[in-house]
Every structure is written in C-alpha cells, then in structure tokens.
C-alpha cells in the first residue's frame, strides 16, 4: 500500500516549520509499513491533483503569498474538483487564507482566493502571536499562531475548532480554522501534526479510505512522547 503526499509550494510557503506536517504524515505511514511518496509542487509546475492522497501547504512571507495567489488561481478549478472528490487537504496560515474567498489588505487591495472555504480575511495592524490550544472533534490541538490577517467565517462554515487559549481566526469569534469535506485550514504552526498525532491519523485515515476503501486500517502507534510534548506546550505562556 502507498499514499501520495503532495507538498504544495514547499519553497515559497514554508517559513514556520510547516514541513513538519509532511514529515509527520510520511513517518506515521512508514511506521505502519505503508509507503509514503512525497511530491513537491512549485509555482508553475503542472500537477494532476487526482494523483494526490493528501495535499499539504504552509505559510509564507507576504511576497511569496502574492506569487502563490496568482498560481492558485490557475489551479482553482482542479483544486475545487479534488476537494469535491474527497482528496484530503491541509492548508496552514497563508495558504489557508487563500483557500477562502479573498484577502483584503489594510489599504483595501484585494487578493482573490479560490473559495474552497466560505471565509474571508482582512489584513490587520497587530500580529496575533503566541501559543494556542483548540478544542476539536478530534480532541485538543496545540500549536503556535503568528498572523496579522483576521479571518471571518461565512454563515454555516464549519470551523476546525473553538479556541481555549490564544486568538484563532480573529480576536472576536473564538473559532479557529475551517473544514469543508476533507479539506482543513488552520493558523496553527508548531508544526501542527507532529504534536497532534490523533489529528494527523484522522487525515491519514480519510486518505486511506478514499484510496483503498473502507476496510483499510491504520494500526496503533506509541504516541507517548508526542502527547507529553503537546501537554507541555499547552502550559507555555
């Protein structure tokens, strides 16, 4: 058995250790005897998203986000089709924002998104920085947020979780991230998946079922260190 992990914009959108998400997914497959194939997709690279089982993308600097926004527009139809077909996506920070309808800068300029999630983001003056803890369907998630954009979910858009500590999508609503079919968006760095193994396995389980059917199972792993690290991180100021 094997799964294909597509790392979208590994060079452009990866300044906060979000590569850790790709590492976590790959190792957790390999430890169970499942081959993990990582494919790197740069701006401009042709890519057929039906080949991917999990698509992972991270956060980047403003300049990189602009380059990526234009590239995403060209892939918008393909990505929306893949989401509709049940491909698993995990988008963090800058790419999470671009998976919404639009990013409106402080000066009123608009950077269009691809509308996978029903949300929009507004540039702010003050960055929201710090350790963050969420409550989600898959248990608590622990990470670190660092963003100036305020994201507002549309009516009926499901968040990833509710904020127990930290800011989340914005400082008003106490929600964090977004979920649509098997596509997930979040502001959490850390990286997110290594310290939240139950959530990492939820992504893998969905991808396995999509590719190999309902009887595909993920065996258990010893996640003692990961859980201890998450507990410790949750207590940091």
């Amino acid at each position: 058995m094997r799964l294909v992990i597509a790392h979208l914009y590994p060079a452009e959108m990866n300044i906060y250790g979000d590569t850790g998400n790709v590492i976590a997914l790959s190792r957790r497959l390999e430890w169970r005897g499942i081959d993990a194939v990582v494919e790197r997709i740069a701006v401009g690279d042709p890519y057929d998203f039906t080949a991917a089982d999990v698509v992972v993308a991270g956060g980047g600097e403003d300049r990189a986000q602009l380059a990526v926004a234009a590239d995403l527009q060209r892939r918008a139809g393909d990505i929306r089709e893949a989401v509709a077909a049940g491909t698993v996506f995990l988008t963090i920070c800058g790419t999470y924002q671009l998976f919404g309808h639009r990013f409106v800068t402080h000066d009123g300029d608009e950077m269009p998104g691809i509308g996978v999630f029903d949300l929009e983001t507004h540039g702010g003056d003050e960055r929201m920085i710090g350790n963050i803890v969420l409550d989600t369907e898959w248990g608590p998630l622990v990470g670190f947020e660092n963003h100036s954009g305020r994201t507002f979910l549309g009516e009926g858009q499901q968040p990833l979780g509710m904020v127990r500590k930290g800011y989340g999508n914005n400082e008003r609503d106490f929600d964090e991230g977004a979920v649509a079919a098997n596509a997930f968006g979040s502001y959490l760095h850390g990286a997110l998946l290594p310290k939240n193994p139950a959530f990492a396995d939820e992504l893998l389980r969905r991808a396995l079922v999509q590719r190999h059917g309902d009887d595909a199972v993920l065996g258990p792993l010893d996640d003692g260190v990961e859980r201890a690290a998450a507990d410790a991180a949750a207590t940091r100021p």
Binding site: N14, Y16, G17, T19, I129, G130, A191
Partner: peptide, 14 residues
C-alpha cells in the same frame, strides 16, 4: 522558548 530564544519552536522542523 523564552523571548530571547523565540517563543515559537516551529523552526526545529526546518
């Protein structure tokens, strides 16, 4: 992860 170290340890993954 004190202020002088950087409070975010995500960089360990880079």
């Amino acid at each position: 992860d004190h202020t002088a170290d950087g409070r975010d340890v995500s960089w360990l993954w880079d």
